[in-house]
Design a protein around this nucleic acid. Structure first.
Length: 317
DNA sequence: CACTTGACCTGTCCGC
DNA sequence: TGCGGACAGGTCAAGT
């Protein structure tokens, strides 16, 4: 689901919406959705306030005044949606403000939470909580942050801020592609150790470069006129430089458009991103390549659905 | 070690 | 309408 631009959009939204808010309670639909020890929740989450929201790769980091951090991965269908107090009927579900529990039922009925048009585009969120709601954070002003995840691949963890860099994913993950000091030369160098795999698999490998997923891999490869199945070792240096600039421009454009929404993704206000209106190949099979007019096709590379222009992106060219 | 495949889940869409 | 299978924006563990 959310890739770098989507998580970045959520991060920016939350930084406008929840900084300084005090966490009054937390509830989960299932212990697996928020498996922290109750001791940590009681002592370092409840009563803390949000100091900053950060992003690393596709991971969201919500820093708390207790020097603890909520670490959140949205995976394929996760959403993190803030709902203001005036949109929540607090009587629609029970809140335990004193002793948080990680094992309670989220009631099936809820208040209406509707968002109107504007940009980004319309909301996908009807009312919250809904059947995909996994965790609810309630703030002291009675506003709420909902973690929804239809497929249950996502996760939320609470841990000391100082330990975040030590989790396995953080130790392995590669550099941020949009950092100013990340150069085309370093980009090319990092691919060299994956010489025998496809360029698409290498782009999706978070240890090479952080934050790239299926959408922006396809979009950037189209921009650089590279067939996704091309072996990394077969690519000339000039193609790496081209791919580097295409990737950065695609990611930047998507952030500007508030990310991509195929089905599930929404920003922190529950609204869709509009990048898909600007996509050149992703999910555009059967339509014309915007560069040469050839019909875009969908193939399978690295176990993932992959969209290419068969004329612009040829193996061995 | 490098690389690929299946598993984790729920929902939707497509063909029969 | 119903049912089976494939597929969906990500990442691991286990396989070759």
């Amino acid at each position: 689901m959310p890739e770098l631009p989507e998580v970045e959009t959520v991060k920016r939204g939350l930084n406008k919406l929840i900084i300084g808010k005090v966490i009054a309670s937390v509830r989960a639909d299932n212990p697996k959705s928020f498996p922290n020890a109750e001791h940590d929740v009681r002592n370092f989450l409840i009563g803390s306030h949000v100091t900053e929201v950060r992003r690393r790769a596709k991971v969201l980091l919500i820093d708390l005044s207790t020097n603890y951090t909520l670490v959140i991965h949205l995976k394929m269908t996760g959403q993190l949606v803030f709902v203001n107090k005036n949109l929540v009927d607090s009587k629609s579900y029970m809140v335990d403000g004193e002793r948080p529990t990680t094992n309670y039922q989220i009631p099936p009925t809820a208040n209406e939470v509707r968002y109107g048009g504007g940009h980004p585009t319309d909301s996908l969120i009807g009312s919250l909580p809904d059947k995909s709601t996994r965790v609810i954070f309630q703030f002291s002003d009675d506003s709420h942050l909902f973690f929804n995840d239809q497929r249950k691949f996502g996760w939320v963890r609470l841990m000391p801020t100082a330990e975040v860099p030590n989790i396995d994913f953080m130790k392995r993950v590669g550099p941020e592609p949009l950092e100013a000091d990340f150069t085309a030369t370093e980009f090319a160098t990092r691919f060299k150790r994956r010489a025998k795999t496809s360029i698409k698999a290498a782009l999706l490998d978070q240890s090479v470069v952080a934050g790239v997923g299926n959408i922006y891999a396809d979009e950037a490869l189209w921009g650089a006129k590279i067939h996704p199945a091309t072996k990394v070792g077969d690519l000339p240096n000039s193609k790496f430089h081209l791919l580097y600039s295409e990737l950065r421009s695609v990611l930047n454009l998507s952030i500007e458009k508030g990310g991509s929404t195929n089905r599930n993704y929404v920003n922190a206000e529950g609204k869709k991103g509009s990048y898909m209106e600007f996509a050149r190949v992703f999910r555009r099979e059967g339509l014309d390549c915007p560069r040469c007019g050839t019909e875009i096709i969908k193939i399978r590379v690295a176990g993932r659905g992959t969209h290419i222009c068969p004329a612009c992106q040829q193996l061995g060219k």
